[in-house]
Simulated assay, not measured.
Amino acid sequence: MQTAVGTQLPPSSIPIYTTVAAYREWRRRAFEERRTVGFVPTMGALHEGHISLVKRSLAENDLTVVSIFVNPAQFAPHEDLATYPRTLPQDLEKLSMQSYVVSDPESTGASTIRKPSAVFLPSVSEMYPSGISQDTAEQKGTFVEVKGYSHQMEGKTRPTFFRGVATVVTKLFNAIEPTNAYFGQKDIQQGLLLRRLARDLLLSHPDHEHIHIVPTARDPSDELALSSRNAYLTADGRRVAATLREALQAAEAAWLQGFAKSECVEKALQVVESRKSRASAEGLHVELRLDYVELNNADDFEVVDPQTTKNEMESRPVILSGALWVDKTRLIDNIILGEANRIVG
């Protein structure tokens, strides 16, 4: 296990690398052995959504690396950096339990077992040698911005978020040098933006065609998108947390029936307002506040015209997305309308 001087890490059956230099020695050997490396970047507090990405990587790559790094640059000064859940011992335990059996068709029943190969666990100073502030006006050093693709959808509410994402993922790609990288559909704008980043910057590890967006993992009871922030929900909040999913499904049904975009959004708003009324009648102590519901072109994230219908899009993928505050917890979700297999899979 590679650790920084004076750092006490939890026990782990998986090698942990806390510095880029130590990790790169491991990666050099993988290059020499011509072994493929899958990469799952996370901020920790791992749940089944993260694990689904790890499983996908284990199935498709010789080696799998998981990073755990809570990135200060994607939190605005008023956001929840200090309280973001940190559960490293449990995260390492969950990762150690993952495996994938690979059968050798040329042998008589022989097989190998793939398990996560390494955890990259850098410090803030390792990732930001010039220092980092949550206030972009005070930041110094090198940052990455994908111009024209960061102000729509999530970027409209969180204007500095994708600058932080693009910067840290560029750093991680440079450090990890993965063959394939895996992201969840819940953060669809992030995945598509990173594909564009990899293409525009001519990245080779991974190239843009090897950035995979995997379908959102959901709670089987109500289809709530799994998220580390779900841990913030109160008992009453959890009872209404699926409201956003239900609202998006109402908009999707209207879209498929040929309604215009503006009418689809209205259907979603009606679901939220109805659930607010029911929550009050049920005596639930919870506040629901819709941030947005919108339809955007998947190619450039531009807002779909209010009068546009499904037929006018000619099966081009459209992102139906939304964000909902449940008390102080902000939940996001999306549905791909049209040819989703062009984006997710």
Rank of each mutant, 00 (worst) to 15 (best):
Met1Cys: 10
Pro10Leu: 09
Pro11Asn: 12
Thr18Gln: 15
Thr19Lys: 11
Trp26Ala: 12
Phe31Met: 12
Thr36Ser: 15
Val37Arg: 00
Val40Ile: 14
Gly44Pro: 10
Val54Glu: 12
Val54Thr: 09
Lys55Arg: 15
Leu58Cys: 01
Ala59Asn: 02
Leu63Asp: 09
Phe69Gln: 06
Gln74Glu: 12
Asp80Gly: 09
Ala82Phe: 05
Gln90Lys: 14
Leu95Glu: 03
Val102Leu: 03
Ser111Gly: 10
Thr112Tyr: 06
Thr112Cys: 06
Thr112Ala: 07
Arg114His: 15
Lys115Cys: 13
Ser117Gly: 14
Ala118Thr: 05
Leu121Ala: 03
Ser123Met: 04
Ser125Cys: 08
Ser130Val: 02
Ile132His: 10
Ile132Pro: 04
Ile132Val: 13
Glu145Cys: 13
Val146Thr: 08
Gln152Pro: 09
Val168Lys: 09
Val169Tyr: 11
Gly184Pro: 07
Lys186Tyr: 10
Leu193Trp: 04
Leu194Trp: 07
Asp219Cys: 04
Asp219Ala: 06
Pro220Phe: 01
Ser227Ala: 13
Leu233Asn: 04
Leu233Gln: 05
Leu248His: 04
Ala250Ser: 15
Glu252Val: 06
Ala253Trp: 09
Gln257Glu: 14
Cys264Leu: 08
Glu266Lys: 11
Lys267Asp: 00
Ala268Leu: 03
Leu269Lys: 12
Val272Leu: 01
Glu282Arg: 14
Glu282Val: 03
Val293Leu: 13
Leu295Ala: 08
Asn296Asp: 07
Ala298Phe: 03
Phe301Pro: 11
Asp305Asn: 14
Asp305His: 15
Gln307Arg: 11
Thr309Glu: 07
Arg316Thr: 12
Ile319Val: 15
Ile319Cys: 02
Ala323Glu: 10
Val326Tyr: 05
Val326His: 02
Asn341Leu: 07
Arg342Thr: 13
Arg342Met: 11
Val344Ile: 13
